[in-house]
């Protein structure tokens, strides 16, 4: 239930940026941990990588790439907002950022399946 004063597009852009950043920060240690197994437990590392063959895992990875892309493009939008002269097209940029993220994540998904 979103409070009424928040129901405008750029607040949702903020929410998406914050949630994607949070998710990435929380999942990154797990990502690092799995990669580190390559040295200490190479067999377990191999087993983890075998999981990528499962469709559900591919879909989850698509989600992760989407989160990274969303945070990246959203970040570019913010840096442009703060360092370039003001543009009245803020909502358009937010829409472009979200679409570009989806397209990139989709490219990943199509490559993975």
């Amino acid at each position: 239930m979103i409070r009424p004063h928040r129901s405008h597009p750029l607040w949702y852009a903020f929410l998406l940026h914050r949630l994607s950043g949070l998710a990435l920060a929380v999942l990154l240690p797990f990502h690092f941990y799995v990669l580190a197994l390559a040295l200490t437990e190479p067999d377990r590392f191999g087993e983890f990588i075998e999981w990528v063959d499962y469709p559900l895992v591919k879909f989850a990875e698509f989600g992760l790439v989407f989160l990274l892309a969303v945070h990246f493009f959203g970040g570019l939008r913010l840096i442009a907002l703060e360092f370039l002269p003001w543009s009245p097209l803020q909502k358009t940029y937010a829409a472009i950022a979200a679409s570009a993220s989806f397209l990139i994540a989709r490219a990943f998904f199509l490559s993975a399946i």
Partner: peptide, 26 residues
Amino acid sequence: CHSQQGCMNYCPNELNPTASIAGLKR
């Protein structure tokens, strides 16, 4: 400021504090 732009969305005088704050950041 997280540039949510609620301020400029609701300002009855159509001001843009987000842009001003971006100027302050620079």
